[in-house]
Amino acid sequence: MDDLKRPTLDSDFTCDMAFNKITKWAQKNSLWLLAYGTGCGAIELSPTMTSRYDWSRLGIRGSATPRQADLLLITGYLSTKTLKRVIRSYEQMQDPKYVIGFGSCTINGGMYYDSYNTIKQLDLYIPVDVYINGCMPRPEAVLSGLAYLKDKIGDKKADGWIKYKQNFEWYRENQKKILKSFNGDNMPDKYNW
């Protein structure tokens, strides 16, 4: 845990201010989230997108494929089996990408702290930008989490994707520890591409 390097401002990130301001504004207001309900919290997403809470007001829209998505929601506990799919989808997403973890299960395993097949601490395997607590947060909580993420993007703090790229070996090693048959399921060692 200790040799985790602080995310330094990678060269991609520095760009001339004027243009940066507009892209920041655009990235903030149009978040396309990968329609991939990993855990029990996915049920909360439907009320947030339908008429009462309607996240499309905030410019958020679901997207079918990781290629078009910016945001990956880990809703609730994450079993090791789903971790394989999550890693693949996360690595297939294009670069300024963010991850939100729902509920306590992503923080410390939650009520499944001692179960053999769930991930105790999500942060070891993929970088998480925002945590939303609540054993499955209500739509209001989800919206507030999303708003918080938008502010983080606004002032350039949501840099999980840079941390992942710079400490890639570390993450990969953790993943290999938990996923015994890594190459057995022919998961590529290097970054997905």
Binding site: D12, I22, T23, W25, A26, Q27, N29, S30, W32, G59, R61, D70, Q94, D95, P96
Partner: peptide, 12 residues
């Protein structure tokens, strides 16, 4: 907004 965001993507 969507178009500008898509354009500002870092990797293609």
């Amino acid at each position: 907004i969507d178009v500008i965001k898509l354009y500002s993507k870092r990797t293609f």
